[in-house]
Amino acid sequence: MAEETLTTAQSHGHGHGEHPPHLAHHFESPGQQFDACKFGMWIFLCTEVLMFSGLFCAYAVYRANHPEIFLYAHKYLDTNLGAINTAVLICSSFTMAWAVRAAQKGQQGLLIGLLALTLLGGFGFLGIKYIEYEHKFHKGLLPGAQYNPTVTPGDHGNGDKHAEMGDHELITSEHDAGNAHTAPPGAAPARHDEEPAVAPTGVKPTEQTGLEKTTLPQAAPPPAGRSMEHDHAHEHGMTGRPNNVHLFFGIYFAMTGLHGIHVLAGMAFIAWVLKRSIAGEFGPEYFTPVDLVGLYWHLVDLIWIFLFPLLYLIH
């Protein structure tokens, strides 16, 4: 929702000003207008940072209290793909900064080329993300109830022998989960939490379908007998896999999903600014939209700079 309102934030800049062309009627000077836009943009970036802080908080709380889940589950992630993605985003951030400079210096050709390059970087990032998601969907490494791994950690999707068995496993797990609205595996990876406006109506996930109900401790032994402390031995289920590993994937998909949505939105803005720069609207005296879209793109890169070590480089 915030994304398209953002475009209005930038477009307000060039109202039908009497004197300088791109000056809105209610601003005194282009300088005042530029400062207002930058200030408004930074406030918006601040709200984005706070929105992602919710996810970083969930990550921090669950990592602090269940470190074994993160140690176990991060091995499913492919660090090389993550590193390549980071490099791709840093390069596209570089070309974006360069594009802003080109706009300020009025180098139209360079501006258009660099914006195109940045857009390409965005596509590259999403492409790699798609590969990673595809691997996870395929192997049942899904959040919450659908978590039904068919591959041992460390096997980064190249374990083909698991492939066919994986599908069978997944289908049954899908059937057990019994909630019709989960995207069937193999289909285009449903962005984890796409814009809620389109989310399916509140179909109640049936309570006990295949889920282990909270088994209360045996009533017979007097309560004092039960060990309250945080005993790690109890942590590990039969297969050495700590319980609730799906929490890692819940947080993984929430973070990278929301970040992915913001990458998509950023690419839409870059495309929009690219179209306007092809029309030659930007030059040294008016380049605010390029600058603001550049700030947004750098923020998206900024968030990935923190996501990458937190999710991929767990030690």
């Binding site: 919710g54 609730n244 819940g250």
Partner: peptide, 26 residues
């Protein structure tokens, strides 16, 4: 913004049972 992410996670809980706030899923 923190309300925004809280509501998003709640919607994720209901549609994909992410399990961050659901005690049945830890």
């Amino acid at each position: 913004p923190v309300l925004a992410i809280t509501l998003l996670l709640l919607i994720a809980e209901r549609t994909f049972q992410v399990g961050i706030f659901d005690p049945k899923l830890g």
